[in-house]
């Protein structure tokens, strides 16, 4: 590991100032589980490390009343998930469990309890691995990223947060403060295909959310992980479902279209053909489960 300067700011402005000063050569560490791995492997050698774990404003899961959004279930609050929330805190949070159980499912598939006690929601986003388990489901839930920076706070739909493997829209001096999830519009689900129950990176991950009304699909979001440079919304597949009956035939077509839209690569975790096939299988299974459709 290359030497680095170590900072442990106590306030958000202080953290932003340190990051700005280093002009891209500083790295934020929260849980550190992804960052340390890259540094130990020599794939990353930042000049400075900024530990943000003392920033109280980045902690916790809270609810704020929903006055602006005109979404279904608008009577429910917006949920804010601090970037420093650990995966284990997310998994065990009563609020998350009640409102977004699919997030608990996603967190539950990730690594081990030891890693989940360290790794944070913000870290899983900012590491921007194409296979990040939380990204597809957060995007399916229409979450936004709240970004703090020298110019104050800005919000970006999470869907637009990822730019490429390891790359996000965060600019020099900025850091991810929290994620905001609107009230759920309907059932959601995260499905992951991996050889083992735990400790594995997704071969394919699928985040799904749908709004159903009297057997008709009002809206649907289908987001794929590990099959493109960034978490991928498959809009053609979504369009196949929206506005029509949520039937086995339409689900099947949507699943096939999703597989076409995927852009997987070959690597040690899976071949292109197999990943496409798994997209189809998981999308079909997930939508079938969401629709409560008998097979």
């Amino acid at each position: 590991m290359q030497p680095f300067d170590y900072f442990s700011p106590k306030t958000l402005p202080e953290a932003v100032e340190i990051l700005s000063r280093h002009n891209g050569d500083a790295r934020v560490v929260a849980g550190g589980t992804d960052l340390l791995l890259k540094m130990k492997g020599g794939r990353l050698a930042p000049k400075a490390i900024v530990n943000i774990k003392r920033l109280a404003e980045l902690r916790g899961i809270s609810e704020t009343s929903n006055s602006k959004l005109q979404t279904p279930n608008y009577h429910l609050p917006i949920t804010t998930i601090g970037a420093l929330t650990t995966l284990e805190e997310l998994r065990r949070s009563p609020i998350i469990r009640e409102r977004y159980p699919s997030l608990c499912d996603a967190a539950n598939t990730m690594a081990s309890v030891q890693i989940r006690n360290l790794a944070t929601v913000g870290g899983n986003m900012c590491n921007a691995a194409p296979s990040a388990d939380l990204a597809p489901i957060f995007i399916a839930l229409d979450a936004s990223a709240v970004i703090a920076g020298p110019g104050g706070e800005r919000r970006v739909p999470l869907e637009e947060f990822f730019v490429g493997p390891g790359k996000t829209v965060l600019e020099s001096g900025e850091l991810l403060a929290s994620l905001e999830a609107p009230p759920p519009v309907g059932p959601s689900l995260y499905l992951k295909h991996s050889p083992r129950a735990h400790m594995d990176i997704a071969v394919v991950g699928v985040g799904l959310a749908a709004q159903l009304s009297g057997g008709v699909c009002e809206s649907a979001r289908i987001v794929l992980g590990a099959v493109a440079p960034v978490p991928l919304r498959v809009r053609r597949a979504e369009a196949e479902l929206i506005g029509g009956p949520f039937s086995a035939e339409r689900i099947d077509r949507a699943a096939k279209i999703a597989a076409e839209e995927a852009q997987p690569i070959d690597d040690v975790r899976g071949a292109v053909w197999y990943r496409r096939k798994m997209v189809e299988v998981l999308v079909r299974r997930g939508l079938t489960a969401i629709g409560g459709i008998e097979n």
Partner: peptide, 9 residues
Amino acid sequence: PHPSSFIPH
């Protein structure tokens, strides 16, 4: 633990 394995098929 896998939600996918909860789904009978």
